[in-house]
Design a protein around this nucleic acid. Sequence first.
DNA 1: ATGAAAGCGCTAACAC
DNA 2: GTGTTAGCGCTTTCAT
Lengths: 314, 314
Amino acid sequence: VGAITVSRAIREPLTVAPATLQRIEAAIAEVGYIPNQSAADLARGAGRTVAAVVPTLEAPYFAAGLAALIERAEAEQASLSIGQTLYDPARGDRLVTALLASRPRGVVLFGADVTGPAGRAALARADIPVVEAWELVARPIGISIGFSHQAACQRLAEHLIARGRRRIAFVVRAPIVGRAAQRIAGWRAALDAAGLTGEVVAVPEAQPYAVGWLAATQLDTSDAVMCAADTVAVGVLGGLARRGRRVPEDIAVAGFGDLDVAAVVTPALTTIAVPTARIGAAAGDHLFDPRWRDAAAAAPARDFGFELVVRDSA
Amino acid sequence: VGAITVSRAIREPLTVAPATLQRIEAAIAEVGYIPNQSAADLARGAGRTVAAVVPTLEAPYFAAGLAALIERAEAEQASLSIGQTLYDPARGDRLVTALLASRPRGVVLFGADVTGPAGRAALARADIPVVEAWELVARPIGISIGFSHQAACQRLAEHLIARGRRRIAFVVRAPIVGRAAQRIAGWRAALDAAGLTGEVVAVPEAQPYAVGWLAATQLDTSDAVMCAADTVAVGVLGGLARRGRRVPEDIAVAGFGDLDVAAVVTPALTTIAVPTARIGAAAGDHLFDPRWRDAAAAAPARDFGFELVVRDSA
DNA sequence: ATGAAAGCGCTAACAC
DNA sequence: GTGTTAGCGCTTTCAT
């Protein structure tokens, strides 16, 4: 009943004699023995966790991506360490150092801008799979998995223009963080191509719904409005209803993300569906795929695309 | 330039001579040195992480609770390991074992039912702060921080009854998991006290909004409806609008949770505000408070209460 | 199929 | 203010 045999009984039960195995398992259950992961990691020279960094846990997109990732990780007996930057790259840099200290099997960044240059350098040095998820990055540390936020919003704006809308505003939270600038760029590209101009309504509120709600007072001269997120759009719908403006007759409203709520509000929200869960799952696949480095070298960015979902609001 | 001095320079910079400290910091930056947390944890006999278990990351309540907890943990240089049970206690038991293997500083369970008896026994043996957050538990492992879901729904039902509603349905996802049974119990208690009967509409859909949306077809004989969550209620509003039923004239609708969306839908949602973020932060406080055991012994359950928020829908 | 020896990288305790 | 010694609990390598 040597220590090493117990170690093997836990990690590779098949290499231990059935009788011994049974006795060991009984003893483990009796004592309530729980192996010390730190010692195991130290001896092996590598940890079993996976690290993820998100701007905020409270955004449904990141929560869904993490949920998919965590499912994938659990299937590999890995647990997930999470850091939240609140859109502050300096925090991201600190987080990356702290997370790398556990020698994770891989790191997933939800958004390429969650860290600054220091964090990126540390990740590059770490020699582990690094996935930048959610957007497409030109020169990722490891691999980038996502879609083009700019192309998505350009597509949506073109739809509005094709439906005859001419004064299309864009509502966004201020300050403009994360992918919002890319979305605005897509909207503006479509407007430029059509010879139109439009106004950005940036509202300094943390809560997305409140951003939309308050923005509704500044849309009286617009006949359409795109929002940086579905949550914002739902707020806009509420604010417009309060002012007695009819959607889509007086003004069209479009969201971004196709959250579950988009289908059940009145009117149902036209929006862009994004493959959040698929991105999270694919990020997990890459972390656990021994060939991740080859894959990243072959195609540094995997575009999962998006889908225009036309409903009643626009 | 001994190893131990580097160790001290990192952990307690003030005990190292300024000149030495500077040289060490320069060297760290140059080499990109990142300490090995496993080795540190092993040597100290304790880890620096905090573990949390949630039924699902995608519920806004748990995401908000985790966000508050993670903020608290980060202030203490601790990182957060997260497990997701998807409402399967067997998964929770496995998760607890895996999480305890990292010798966490403490564990927060969002919902007392995320584990089975095996997990609870392991946690009790671990001799670390254990917080059962979100609901009130009669005999918690360590301490319980939350509010009474039953009392909250009873209060809300009483409000509806006071407003003259007599045929009050309760809409919930099927199967009934988590705190839903407690909420139903509160609703029923109020109805019983008033001599009323009411119907539970349980819809087998995973998505909360869809549950509400579909339930709306089964509410034709009701003059009020309570929902197990705001998300469900928003779905109900959508479904009722589609059927041409007016809220609150024909039927009152009430939610649970006071999510941000509740204030911006039309009509604005009457609901129960719950102290999610305060619970998450308080859970963190307990993990890092050396007197947690005394506190838990003195008052095993901390009731953070709830608040009835009356808006237009009911 | 099982065990013995060595060492992973760090920190606690104790010098100096 | 800094260094030395020992050891944390595992796993790897090499026996047996």
